[in-house]
Design a protein around this nucleic acid. Sequence first.
DNA 1: CCGCGGGTCAACCAAAAGGTTGATACCGGT
DNA 2: ACCGGTATCAACCTTTTGGTTGACCCGCGG
Lengths: 218, 218
Amino acid sequence: MSEIRVLLVDDHPVVRAGLRAMLSDFEGIAVAAEAADGGAALAELSRLHTLGEPVDVVLMDLQMGTGMDGVTATGRIKAGEAGQPAPPVLILTTYDSDADILAAVEAGASGYMLKDAPPEQIRQAVLSAAAGQTALAPEVAARLMGRIRNPDPVLSAREIQLLELLATGLGNRAIAKQLFISEATVKTHLVHIYAKLGVDNRTAAISVAAQRRIIRRF
Amino acid sequence: MSEIRVLLVDDHPVVRAGLRAMLSDFEGIAVAAEAADGGAALAELSRLHTLGEPVDVVLMDLQMGTGMDGVTATGRIKAGEAGQPAPPVLILTTYDSDADILAAVEAGASGYMLKDAPPEQIRQAVLSAAAGQTALAPEVAARLMGRIRNPDPVLSAREIQLLELLATGLGNRAIAKQLFISEATVKTHLVHIYAKLGVDNRTAAISVAAQRRIIRRF
DNA sequence: CCGCGGGTCAACCAAAAGGTTGATACCGGT
DNA sequence: ACCGGTATCAACCTTTTGGTTGACCCGCGG
């Protein structure tokens, strides 16, 4: 059986070098190419596809300094933009926020690993992905389990909308005007938001919401 | 002349592998040891010191998942905890917020590089550090330059420190306790911060500070 | 030596935010 | 038809924040 051909997608040269070194130490895995962002990854995949040397697994980071981010790239790869059949995409990133995980899975990722994982875990994940199976880091799996058992407070769309205005630094009055509701209503929503996030003031709400990626921050 | 002996400190196996592979490709640089957090780094330095094989440069990440963070570790290394003379510490991290840079410099770091830097830049930085010179990434240098010649939003170190606590959602009283100052002083600082950032409340201050990278964003 | 800026603190007042209770209305599911 | 969740609003009160003034100490540079 031939080697598993991997495409590395990460904006950090250091990380690419690390993965290259790590993967080439493993039997049966070879790094076919590298890309520094989502756009380059799509181009690389197309190029290798037309050359008749398709990759078997894409190892993709999520946050890319500049250029197309990992979720978008994953979606476009799975949509077949870089040739059919679309290779499995294995996410390898630093953070394990709910929003990131869910976004990646929705985009069609077949696995989600963390960069602080031991090499052996990464190797297993690549093999699983190549075999068409899903691979989740234990931390990620645990988090998803926790979500099911203990569904954390789900903010309504309206509440998230409020939270976003909150994060821009607007006061209650300004938020009320923006949303065409009364200040009283804004305060009611805020009380609910604080309760769901387990905080008791607006700045802490922003902090928690940003960390859980309920609101996003460039 | 003998090789420059480097200690790698990073909690990600992938990054350590990358740096090891990258540095060992360079003439005159050798990886003496690795550590996954600040505490392990101190222990490693002491061990090598007593073995009579001191390291010449410490390559240190700032944010460590668990264990001692990079700033603390740098401070303790420079304090001579791991043997005299303390080796130069070169920070190699992902973010370039003012807060991180200032904290690292104050702790005694002799350089600040970003992980997305090209290999050659990292090599130069290691050589500079080993030679006792400082080494700043161009982005970081530019930022510091801007701070000097631009009188625009020049926040003092103390103000930035406050801003960071602010962003975690603490109230004035809690901030005061954290910093061992009175609530009155906190309020005074906040007034100055608002004036400098051109805002009039704490949430807007956080928003602006995050956008201008005065504080780190999550 | 004197001024200037940073850091510290106090007292005071006004405005905003936080917390509670209670009410109306709509929608979807049992 | 009833119940639970969401969204809306009001009145009331307490706590926190914001804004101002004035003060003291310290270190640095002209």
